[in-house]
């Protein structure tokens, strides 16, 4: 399916949501193109599983469509609300997963030499996911929101319902732990050639 470009690029998320609630089809397309990649990237890093992340992204977006008619203007940012929904859905998944055998979790392929750049990138993403998975959930959440989603600390504080200082502490500790977890894999990931 081909998607038209986002022609409402200058319109805020909230204005688009109001337009959507009033039956505007272009607003639905703009919001889909604008928000689905963000919520998908977040869920993919939190869960380390693309298929599950797509489920979460679809469900979070569905909840956004449903709330549109009752959206209270000026109370919360649309993106913040959406990330909070996605965060809760991810937490539920992770909690359910903990009940399942841990052996089922995908293991990163260690040290497999890859010739094609695409394979190198896939290996790197697997390594990142494995390293993220080794972090405590709140640290992982803060690191993903800060460094992959590019959100500000006050926005992250709102999503995670904690103070800004706590966010700073979580991201700093998380990034250090991530760097430590990946440091042994630099050669395997092809970083020594760079």
């Amino acid at each position: 399916m081909t998607m038209p470009l986002d022609t409402l690029a200058d319109v805020t998320d909230e204005a688009l949501l109001i337009l959507y609630a009033n039956g505007d089809g272009a607003a639905a397309r703009s919001l889909t193109l604008r928000l689905t990649p963000r919520v998908l990237a977040y869920a993919a890093r939190m869960l380390g599983d693309r298929a599950e992340a797509e489920d979460i992204a679809q469900e979070a977006m569905l909840r956004l469509w449903r709330i549109a008619a009752e959206w209270r203007q000026g109370e919360a940012k649309v993106s913040t609300w959406l990330y909070r929904v996605a965060a809760n859905l991810c937490t539920d998944r992770l909690r359910r997963r903990r009940g399942v055998a841990l052996d089922d979790a995908p293991e990163p392929e260690d040290g497999a030499p890859s010739v094609l750049q695409g394979m190198v990138e896939a290996d790197r993403m697997r390594a990142l996911d494995a390293a993220l998975a080794s972090l405590p959930e709140r640290q992982r959440q803060a690191v993903v929101l800060r460094h992959i989603e590019g959100m500000s600390n006050p926005d992250i504080a709102e999503i995670m319902e904690i103070g800004v200082e706590a966010v700073e502490s979580l991201t700093a500790r998380g990034k250090r732990a991530l760097a430590a977890a990946l440091s042994g894999k630099r050669a395997a990931l092809g970083y020594e050639d760079v």
Binding site: T36, A41, E54, Q58, L128
Partner: peptide, 16 residues
């Protein structure tokens, strides 16, 4: 690299 990951056309179609 993680930021560059794109949703599949199928997912976008389903969300829409």
């Amino acid at each position: 690299l993680a930021r560059a990951e794109e949703p599949s056309p199928a997912l976008l179609a389903q969300v829409l």
